[in-house]
Nucleic acid binder design. Structure first.
Length: 299
DNA sequence: CGCAGGTCCTGCACGC
DNA sequence: TGCGTGCAGGACCTGC
């Protein structure tokens, strides 16, 4: 479910409510949420208990909380349906609660709750290593293959352009490839394509520098906008960092709008309906006028 | 039955 | 032939 803006909202919520807290207890209610912690539940509990949590970090859709003087981190991936809640322990357990991490800061006791219906997400512990391109930056070893996201100060559009030109794939697949650039999922891929007026099946090797720059600026813009709208949603006594009701209005122009009028065409007095296609085993939404199918489309 | 916003493994094709 | 790489497709889950 969550793409970059949702994950960033979670990061800010954790930053505000859990930074410099100490883990006093860890309870695993469903081992499947530890699938990526290969050495198992007992190790996870033993190593995390007693740790002082540092400021949460993010790259793309990966979120991590460093501990142990920056040597390791608790890594969180929300998958399709994951949520992180910071709550008072007296609140009843939500449905699909998978992992409970009790934390204290001063005399305040809270719980960091990982909730996940579909179990594509999960938690694990990992060592922090220097980023290859900027050694002063640390990230989990399992996250080193993830490219920088468009909101990252060191995101390099020119480098992405060069890689795209060498690829024999289509633009949407490239946008969704987290090793090329991260944080973009199905929704924001469609939104970025619409804003840049490019079709999802466009062969990557034919893209111009200008088109690549357009689609990544569009991705950056739409994600910043979503973030600015979601930024206040965790400011509550009991923080629903990423709540059930809590997906904020993303100001979507195409995603989920099939059969409805294209806003851009409408402004010109033209009535075009947004279409939905099965593409790469998922739904893709686009305007057939603003985003014409390229002469040589690629699956 | 179809649908859901993610990730990663497998197997294939290709070049060296 | 074997190996590495890039790419497409499916598996992984539950619930509406």
């Amino acid at each position: 479910m969550p793409e970059l803006p949702e994950v960033e909202v979670v990061r800010r919520g954790i930053h505000r409510w859990a930074t410099y807290a100490t883990v006093t207890q860890v309870e695993v209610l469903d081992q499947r949420s530890l699938r990526r912690h290969e050495v198992g539940e007992a190790d996870f509990i033993a190593r995390l208990t007693g740790q002082l949590l540092d400021e949460p970090q993010r790259r793309g859709k990966y979120l991590w909380i460093p501990y142990g003087e920056g040597s390791h981190a608790l890594v969180v991936h929300l998958g399709m349906s994951g949520q992180v809640l910071v709550t008072d322990p007296s609140l009843p357990d939500p449905k699909h609660l998978k992992i409970r991490i009790t934390i204290t800061s001063g005399d305040r006791i809270q719980e960091l709750r990982f909730v996940d219906q579909r179990i594509f997400g999960g938690l694990y512990l990992d060592a922090l290593v220097p980023a290859v391109d900027r050694p002063e930056e640390l990230l989990p070893a399992t996250v080193t293959h993830i490219g920088r996201d468009p909101l990252d100060d060191h995101f390099d559009t020119e480098a992405v352009f060069r890689k795209l030109r060498k690829r024999r794939s289509n633009l949407k697949r490239a946008l969704l490839d987290q090793s090329l650039s991260s944080g973009i999922g199905n929704i924001y891929a469609d939104e970025a394509l619409f804003r840049a007026r490019l079709h999802y099946s466009r062969p990557t090797e034919t893209l111009t520098r200008n088109e690549v720059s357009r689609v990544y600026s569009a991705a950056e813009q739409v994600m910043r906008l979503a973030l600015s709208q979601g930024g206040t949603s965790f400011d509550a006594l009991y923080v629903n960092v990423n709540g059930e009701s809590g997906y904020f209005d993303r100001s979507l122009y195409v995603y989920g709008r099939h059969g409805q009028l294209c806003y851009r065409c409408e402004e010109r007095g033209q009535e075009t309906l947004i279409e939905r296609r099965k593409f790469m085993n998922r739904s893709s939404y686009f305007c057939p006028v603003c985003q014409p199918v390229p002469r040589r489309a690629r699956k």
